[in-house]
Write a protein that binds this DNA or RNA. Structure first.
Length: 947
RNA sequence: GCCCGAGUGGCGGAACUGGUAUACGCGCACGACUUAAAAUCGUGUCUCGCAAGGGAUGUGGGUUCGAUUCCCACCUCGGGCACCA
């Protein structure tokens, strides 16, 4: 046989496949189907990189397996062609973006084909093609008609470098996600999409889809659903009210002031009543001039100013409280106003400390022991006790008095009950003296509010519900009484250095909390028991939230972090927004028969300095007759963001050439939802959320048959450069797949990229390791020469291992553990080299390898006399009975250490296996003179003798 | 600060629901073939120890006959969010 000439083989089969169209989807919408999707690439000038290959190969393998399993497979590809890099390149070179796109997609197509992906090329789409973006515009118009697309003058994020408005999602850390340029606030009329109307469903319907948990979590965090109460605070001597949103209505009695966002409309309304209006206006102006970077700077101190002369009335207790405006309250979230409860909120706490505002405690910490020896016992009554916890400082050193209990593993500060009419201070003093002997205590302060704790008292053998006062004493000297014998038996007195106290009290949540509060003054922000709140005292936080909201006439509502989507771009290379501005009729949609609104040819693509799109300069295109009144009107000159085309592309694939609809009902019904969508984690909050939103909108119009676009979503890890840093053209550390394909072949590249490491994790590219994958394929090539005839069976070892491998590879592909699938095939190959294997069995091996290495397997398959393609042959099935081992080697442990190995057969009883183990020479040495207490046998794995 | 994820040989990594840690690959060493080198094939390769044995899965503790796997605390790295009331 000839040597393995990858160039010849790969070229040959790529041509054959193209002619025979084996990867084309079956036309008739019948039978079981599989729709596998990858994120279509942005055809940048940099060309395809190794990261694309990784994710494309993964879905290629899955699709190929499905095809062999008899599914009608749709694995399509296209181009996410609109976007900034192409436009910027056009500005620089003067070459039309359309031409740039054409050049780039040609390169991408050629590259993708050279790697042997099984795409259905007859369904290729391009978002910048008018036949495609006609439907992007059409969907936008449906949104406009339903009021979901609206124009709004907003403060937008303006990138000073790209000269475009950015969606919130595109601002990362206060700078432009794309270019890293400074982002400032700018007032601009922008088209918006009301994604927030779908916030609740976008959150809830995640329950019904099979996405990786971390993807769901990412989406949920981004949507940021939060349930709470809306409560009105009346303003004294005014008919106006301040509506606040809070998730902690249980703390309302502790609300000592109200804060509005600086942009809050009430400031303007109440202007005449604000005594210090000049300073207030000055403050607001300062805030507005700040960039996002300043506003989000890390340890930025909160600022604010009181609205003098304005008082709000706390609806819970009718107290008059001051009203402030401050930069830590965001106008976009909730109601743009908060009730400040400094005792139970970190931000309010910081602010109150800075401006000397009152702090009122209304929630008392509450701990329940749920684990450990002092965990509460179910079904036993609680005995209530008032008690003290005493933190006592050493008379000289930085050490604190602690007790180590002898009967259990509890350790902490001095704790004891309050007796009769005793004051808490004398109770504390008495307990310290009784338990430790120390006498001369100076009371300094209470450390916290009352702490409530439920636990099991191990000495008294009862459930306790204790209410602790926490006291801080300093010892004046070492004078000490004799400790009673009884106390001595219970615990040991220990002086713990300040830095070690935390680890000493670690096991006990209450002690731990007291200490933390002792060393650092801070608010208690968790749930607890309500106090200081009239008739609500004693309720749990949760219960109080409901009751108090009702009591003050509030409403339970949900709020979301998600904002509406800024959909306008003042750029050329995007879909024109199909709207006409008529002075008489307002915003008029372009009639559907006039779609698509084509991008006009322009000479210069540079955005204008006043922030208008380059389209605005083409008066011939802009000026138009109003379709309604026929009067003079102007076209919208903003274009759509490049998230638009990718929000529905998976729908177009099912019917890419349809001229009447974006896709036919019949095809949609058969093909959607996408069965499996793989893509990058970086798209979970942008593309994935946007497309789910569009899909749900189309579903509401009965235009698509499913609620969700993607049934299953997984994510790949990235490939970083050899130093571990990101691959980038500027760093010059990119790897061009083309070079690898030439030197080692597409099959080697594919196998290597799947073998490199766990698919969902970031991996480091290592060109030196590729040789391993190449050697593997070369050995596969060579071994096909030594196959025995089918009349002779393969050796038993091979037969068993083959079936094990078929099983492992089949399952590993499903769970995307491609690296272990390949390693198991390597193991099989190693054995095949040493043992007899016949053609029939070897062909099964070729079949399971074929999704990974489609060319070489096809060539060998063909050489072995097969006429039809391996890629449409049926996926091999493993035979479970062939996998079962007749004989197994198991380990024999003595006290958890391996001391011997024994061979057992399938039919041996547990008893005989144990007997056999005990007779092993080395086992006998280790068990000699010892009593055998227990023998644990785990079938086919291990036997452990405890002696 | 908060939320995810990960720490295993020289390197990439494997280990099913707790059951013989280090599969598979790279690299390295030695050997065969060769005038020689490359390629290929074979053998070896966590570590201490002559051996019997012992020690190692980021660190410290816990549960268990048995822990890379479960629990607690901490450290380091990667990613996401960042005043969201």
């Amino acid at each position: 046989m000839k040597f393995y000439d990858h160039k010849k083989i790969e070229k040959k089969w790529q041509n054959v496949w193209e002619k025979s169209k084996i990867y084309q989807t079956r036309k008739e919408a019948k039978g079981k189907k599989f729709y596998g999707l990858i994120e279509f690439p942005y055809p940048s000038g940099a060309g395809l990189h190794v990261g694309h290959i990784r994710s494309n190969t993964a879905m290629d393998i899955i699709s190929r397996k499905r095809r062999m399993e008899g599914y009608n497979v749709l694995y399509p590809i296209g181009w996410d062609a609109f976007g900034l890099p192409t436009e910027n390149y056009a500005i620089k070179t003067g070459i039309h973006p359309e031409k740039v796109t054409k050049t780039n997609t040609d390169i991408f197509r050629k590259q993708l084909k050279s790697v042997g992906f099984g795409f259905d090329w007859s369904r290729e789409i391009d978002t910048s093609n008018p036949s495609y973006y006609k439907w992007t515009q059409w969907i936008f118009l449906q949104m406009f008609k339903k009021g979901l697309a609206y124009k709004k003058k907003t403060e937008i994020n303006w990138c000073t470098k790209c000269k475009i408005g950015l969606a919130n999602e595109e601002v990362v850390g206060g700078v432009c996600e794309r270019c890293g340029g400074a982002v400032v606030k700018k007032e601009k009329e922008q088209w918006m999409l009301a994604i927030t109307k779908y916030a609740d469903r976008l959150d809830k319907d995640l329950d019904d889809v099979d996405y990786l948990e971390k993807i769901k979590l990412g989406q949920r965090n981004w949507i940021g659903k939060s349930e709470g109460s809306e409560i009105d605070f009346k303003i004294k001597n005014s008919s106006e009210k301040i509506k606040v949103f809070t998730t902690r209505a249980d703390t309302i009695f502790g609300a000592t002031y109200v804060v509005l966002a600086p942009e809050h409309e009430l400031v303007e309304i109440l202007k005449s009543k604000i005594e210090n209006i000049k300073e207030v206006e000055k403050y607001i102006k300062e805030i507005k001039n700040k960039t996002d970077i300043d506003r989000t700077a890390e340890d930025k101190e909160k600022t604010g100013i009181e609205l003098k002369g304005i008082k709000a009335i706390n609806p819970a207790n009718n107290e008059e409280i001051p009203v402030w405006i401050a930069d830590y309250v965001l106008v976009q979230y909730g109601t743009g106003a908060v009730m400040a409860v400094p005792a139970h909120d970190e931000r309010d706490w910081d602010f109150a400390k800075k401006y000397n505002l009152p702090i009122k405690v209304v929630i008392e910490p509450y701990f329940v022991k749920k684990a450990g020896s002092d965990a509460i016992r179910d079904n036993e009554p609680f005995i209530e006790r008032n008690a003290v916890v005493c933190v006592v400082k050493h008379w000289q050193e930085e050490k604190y008095l602690c007790l180590k209990w002898k009967k259990n593993d509890w350790q902490g500060f001095v704790v004891g009950g309050i007796e009769g009419n005793e004051s808490i201070i004398s109770a504390g003093q008495r307990e310290v003296t009784e338990e430790t002997g120390y006498k001369n205590l100076k009371f300094v302060k209470k450390i916290t509010e009352t702490i409530h704790s439920k636990f099991y008292h191990e000495i008294k053998k009862q459930n306790r519900f204790a209410h602790f006062e926490t006291l801080y004493f300093e010892l004046k000297n070492d004078e000490r009484d004799e400790i009673a014998e009884e106390e001595k038996n219970i615990h040991e007195v220990v002086w713990v250095p300040k830095n070690d106290v935390l680890s000493f009290t670690l096991k006990d949540e209450d002690m731990n909390y007291i200490w933390k509060r002792f060393i650092k003054e801070q608010p208690y922000i968790d749930d607890g028991i309500v106090g200081n709140s009239d008739k609500f005292n004693g309720l749990s936080s949760l219960e109080a939230q409901k009751q108090i909201t009702k009591f003050v006439g509030g409403r339970i509502v949900s709020k979301y972090k998600l904002r509406d989507w800024v959909f306008s771009r003042q750029r050329y290379w995007g879909e024109p927004i199909p709207i006409i501005h008529c002075e008489k009729c307002g915003y008029v949609p372009v009639p559907e028969k006039d779609l698509p609104v084509m991008l006009p040819k322009v000479k210069s693509y540079t955005p204008t300095d006043n922030g208008e799109s380059p389209l605005a300069a083409i008066s011939k295109w802009v000026n138009i007759k109003c379709p309604k009144c026929k009067g003079s009107a102007k076209r919208e000159t903003d274009t759509m963001p490049n998230w638009a085309g990718s929000s529905w592309y998976y729908l177009r694939y099912v019917d890419p050439n349809n001229k009447k609809e974006f896709a036919s009902k019949k095809n949609l019904k058969y093909w959607t939802p996408v069965d499996w969508y793989n893509g990058g984690m970086e798209h979970t909050t942008l593309h994935l959320l946007y497309s789910r939103f569009w899909h749900k909108f189309l579903y509401d119009l009965r235009l698509v048959p499913t609620k969700e676009p993607y049934q299953k979503r997984t994510a790949h890890g990235m490939i970083s450069a050899e130093g571990g840093e990101k691959m980038s053209k500027s760093k010059g550390n990119t790897v061009d797949p083309k070079d690898i394909v030439e030197t080692y072949g597409a099959d080697t590249l594919r196998v290597y990229e799947m073998f490199i490491g766990p698919f969902d994790q970031t991996v480091v590219w290592n060109t030196n390791s590729i040789i391993g994958s190449r050697r593997f394929l070369e050995r596969v090539w060579k071994i096909s020469e030594k196959l025995t005839d089918n009349k002779k069976g393969s050796s038993l070892i091979i037969e068993q291992l083959l079936h094990k491998t078929i099983k492992k590879v089949s399952l590993d592909i499903e769970s995307m553990n491609f690296n272990t699938a390949i390693s198991s095939m390597m193991v099989l190959l190693n054995e095949m080299e040493k043992n007899e294997i016949n053609k029939k069995d070897f062909k099964m091996f070729l079949q399971i390898l074929s999704p990974f290495a489609p060319h070489i397997t096809e060539e060998i398959w063909n050489n072995l006399g097969e006429n039809k393609s391996i890629h449409i042959s049926p996926w091999p099935k493993w035979n479970e009975s062939k996998i079962v081992d007749e004989k197994v080697k198991i380990a024999v442990q003595v006290n958890g250490r391996v001391r011997a190995e024994i061979m057992i057969t399938k039919d041996m009883t547990e008893e005989s296996i144990k007997e056999m183990a005990l007779k092993e020479k080395n086992v006998m040495t280790w068990t000699e003179g010892k009593e055998i207490k227990k023998i644990i046998y785990v079938p086919n794995k291990i036997i452990n003798i405890v002696a």
